[in-house]
């Protein structure tokens, strides 16, 4: 039986927006933010003009006139940094997808409630194991990529494996959470029917539940791939040879036209990924 709709919503929506605005203003007050801080002052204005006029003429070559002999051409450096950014993003996503799928299955209700032995015995243990894996996923994702990066840099030094782990661990946690939710929300009937026919619960999960959740999982995975690309670019601020590294170098030497070339390259890469996922979405809907 369905409940009749409530006449008065429990959540007072009309106050929500006012409350949110008030909280935002209070926080701004707490941070000593003043709108005047947004205006460029004195020398700042010249800087703005220089920075934004450089947007119209991105650099195709080094801005500095004294480039040591043997330095690779600027565009090649940009290309290499895009490649390195993509490498970190793709490699970490590849590992995180595998890890997230395993951890996601292990922290889902649908696995523990059906896959391991029917009946009542061991319900408590199963519940505890599920919560254990869920907690691992929560801990992995609650620490930001860059904090992971700092930890790994301190632990194993400036190696590519430190960067890869810093990206992989939080994304594994995020994917595990979403994947387990999607598995649990997938329609129950096919896997129940398979189990009713005597199918092993693990197989029922694999062929009855996973294929239903799969499109959502793939779409979300792709969205996370975009996030991984952005995070990978930022890793450059911590000494890895991704785009952030060159952005920081050029920006600090006031070579704004080089900065814009790098920004355009980053925007183009993100746009390309978005196109790719758009094509996938459209073909999956059809």
């Amino acid at each position: 039986m369905t409940q009749p709709p409530k006449a008065t919503p429990r959540f007072k929506r009309r106050y929500a927006l006012v409350l949110l605005a008030a909280l935002g203003l209070l926080a701004a007050y707490g941070l000593n933010l003043h709108w005047k801080g947004l205006l460029p002052r004195g020398e700042g204005f010249v800087l703005w003009k220089r920075f934004f006029s450089a947007a119209l003429s991105p650099a195709f070559n080094y801005e500095s006139t004294s480039v040591p002999a043997g330095t690779p051409p600027f565009l090649l450096v940009v290309f290499r940094s895009v490649l390195r950014t993509l490498e970190f993003a793709v490699a970490s996503m590849g590992l995180a997808l595998v890890g997230g799928l395993i951890l996601g299955v292990l922290s889902s209700h649908s696995f523990w409630d059906s896959a391991l032995g029917q009946g009542r015995q061991g319900t408590k243990l199963r519940n505890r194991l599920r919560i254990f894996f869920r907690t691992i996923a929560a801990l992995l994702r609650s620490v930001h990529e860059l904090l992971w990066a700092i930890l790994f840099l301190a632990a194993i030094g400036q190696t590519t494996s430190a960067g890869l782990l810093a990206l992989t661990l939080p994304f594994t946690g995020i994917l595990a959470k979403l994947f387990s939710e999607m598995l649990d929300e997938a329609a129950n009937e096919p896997s129940a029917a398979l189990e009713g026919l005597g199918c092993h619960p693990g197989v029922a999960l694999l062929v009855g539940r996973l294929p239903i959740a799969w499109p959502d999982m793939a779409a979300y995975g792709f969205y996370r791939f975009e996030c991984a690309l952005r995070s990978s670019a930022v890793l450059g601020f911590f000494g890895f040879q991704t785009m952030g590294y060159h952005l920081e170098l050029s920006y600090n030497s006031l070579h704004y036209r080089e900065v814009w070339t790098l920004l355009y390259a980053l925007l183009f890469t993100v746009w390309g990924l978005e196109r790719w996922s758009g094509i996938l979405r459209r073909s999956a809907v059809r």
């Binding site: 002052r41 700042g44 920075f51 952005l247 925007l267």
Partner: peptide
Amino acid sequence: RALPEYVLGFLLLALLSG
């Protein structure tokens, strides 16, 4: 939304006082 928050913040750091 294409530019990461950290990059945006880094660029704005020199452009805004404070």
